[in-house]
Amino acid sequence: MTSTLAAVFPYLGFANALVWTCVGLGVVLGVLAFLDRSTPVWALALLLLLELALVVLGILAVLTWVGGSPPAEPVVFFFYLLVVLLAPPVMVWWGRGEPGRWGSGAVAVALLLLAVLVVRVEQVWAGGIG
């Protein structure tokens, strides 16, 4: 059972939509990697949109935080959020540095890990980190 402290992440629906966006884009880039294609420009545009959405999510979460409902694990939450926000730019830089399948493959794998990290952001907000 959840205790009074363990509040659910306030923008769970939004965050979950981003999780599935990461998974979807990751799978598409995985297919492109299989076909030996570089990361296409439209995927970079989607990654930029994803980054903007993550920034909005972060701002909303921090506003809730300063508004008096802090996350259960503030320090861990802060660092997870930081990593999640830094991930897409690093991904693009890393994936563009390599033509062909391994560049898009690296972005694909990183996107799937990013999906897990966003889920962790939700969990850390609610508490219950091992």
Binding site: W94, G95, E98, W102, A106, V109, A110, L113
Partner: peptide
Amino acid sequence: RGPGRVLIAVYAV
């Protein structure tokens, strides 16, 4: 280079 890109990405995370 090559698969090393993917390997480093995972290890970095």
